[in-house]
Amino acid sequence: MGLSKTAEKLDEYYARMEAGKATKIKPGHVEKAITKLESRERDLLIEIEGTRKTSKKERLEQKLATTRDLISRAKWLMKEIG
């Protein structure tokens, strides 16, 4: 999980916010992003369940891994801004 890049981007965001060039992120915004990602995770699980073609299944599983990675990042972000 590439958290160092995410942390770097968070620092850049804080710098922009202090300069008055970025909108303040509230926990509700991160929650909304998590909700969308979790909904996508559920959709992917259903799609994987109904797929027989191996190559497609592999692609979907990789997408699921990415979504889960993003969810972990979002949860980390929630802790950071909370």
């Binding site: 590439g2 890049k5 995410t6 981007k9 968070l10 965001y13 970025a22 909108t23 303040k24 992120i25 509230k26 915004h29 991160v30 909304k32 992003a33 990789q62 891994a65 990415t66 990675d69 993003l70 990042r73 979002a74 972000l77």
Partner: peptide, 23 residues
């Protein structure tokens, strides 16, 4: 369109190096 949500997505978004590590 929500600026704050867009900021969240930008922070979480995968960069070129990240996309090579998630498998």
């Amino acid at each position: 369109r929500d600026d704050a949500l867009s900021e969240v997505e930008q922070i979480l978004a995968m960069e070129e190096d990240d996309t090579k590590t998630v498998t």
